[in-house]
């Protein structure tokens, strides 16, 4: 075969790959939106389930997902930022730092269900928090910690060394420099990372299976020690534990649609902010 033909076939395959990959996204969005949008109504968004989960709405699950996500971010954000500050600003290079870096990388690779087991053994049983918002949030928080750390690290590394020097040369201490110069400049990057983490946490199911989630609850959670309903778990439960598959699948479509819209909006926002930030730096 002649070189040009080979090249054409090769490039054809590459174009096919990218088109196929992107079309998956649109196929998934299309099917879920087409069937999900039908069940969305004011009642669906604001009321609790009725009639053995075959009617009514999913408001408690939306609220539960909100609480779990909020809890996870409250826990992981300060810790992740602190960890990234240590790694980028304080740490002397050496074995200790390598160990921390390695453990962050590996924590990022731990399967999500393992975080659920850890949460079960430590938060639910050992600390006796029970299956609760608190246990679920902490498990999700640990899962998302590596993501926040690496986003923050990236944001800190993007800040030129020269402005740290300028601050130190004016007699500022290291902490003053970090607090007043480095962190404010890194805020957009950290924000992007945080928003992406929110999207990730909101959609995670496995870590809350045994630490927080309930199939059906009357009313809304009362404290951090209450069990909650959550959107992703609700989808799973409707599809696998239901007694009336016909009606429940329709509700699951509705839940999936809401979750998909939430997550896509959130990650779209993060990507948009980052894009703008880039063009700002490049003048």
């Amino acid at each position: 075969m002649n070189q040009n033909t080979i090249q054409k076939i090769g490039f054809g395959f590459l174009s096919f790959s990218v088109i196929a990959t992107i079309s998956f996204l649109f196929i998934i969005i299309f099917f879920i939106a087409a069937r999900g949008i039908r069940v969305i109504s004011w009642e669906f968004l604001t009321a609790g389930p009725r009639d053995g989960m075959t009617a009514g709405g999913v408001a408690p699950a939306i609220v539960g997902t909100f609480y779990l996500t909020l809890g996870a971010i409250i826990f992981a954000l300060p810790l992740g930022i602190a960890c990234a500050i240590y790694l980028c600003e304080y740490s002397p290079k050496g074995a200790v730092v390598n160990i921390i870096r390695l453990s962050i990388n590996n924590l990022a690779g731990v399967p999500s269900v393992v975080f659920g087991l850890f949460g079960l053994a430590v938060f639910v049983k050992f600390f006796n928090f029970g299956a609760s918002i608190l246990s679920g949030s902490l498990s999700l928080g640990i899962l998302v910690l590596p993501l926040i750390i690496s986003a923050t690290q990236e944001a800190l590394l993007a800040i030129p060394h020269s402005i740290r020097e300028a601050s130190m040369a004016l007699g500022a201490t290291k902490w003053q420099t970090i607090k007043k110069i480095v962190l404010p400049a890194a805020v957009p990057g950290i924000l992007t990372g945080t928003i992406l983490s929110i999207g990730r946490v909101a959609g995670e199911t496995a870590p809350i299976l045994f630490t927080a989630a309930a199939f059906y609850l009357k009313g809304y959670p009362k404290s951090v020690f209450s069990e909650v309903m959550a959107l992703p778990y609700h989808i799973y439960a409707l599809m696998t534990e239901g007694v009336y598959p016909e009606k429940q699948t329709a509700i699951a479509y509705g839940c999936s649609f809401i979750l998909l819209v939430l997550v896509l909006l959130v990650s779209g926002l993060a990507i948009f902010i980052r894009q703008r930030q880039r063009s700002y730096y490049h003048g």
């Binding site: 020269s162 300028a166 601050s167 040369a169 004016l170 500022a172 003053q176 110069i181 404010p184 400049a185």
Partner: peptide
């Protein structure tokens, strides 16, 4: 504080002009 330094490449802080100058006083 007693021995100031100006660097090779201008390195203003990503803040406004006023804050750039007032920063040294604040810290």
């Amino acid at each position: 504080r007693r021995v100031g330094m100006v660097f090779q490449k201008p390195n203003p802080f990503p803040k406004n002009i006023f804050e750039n100058i007032s920063y040294g006083l604040e810290v």
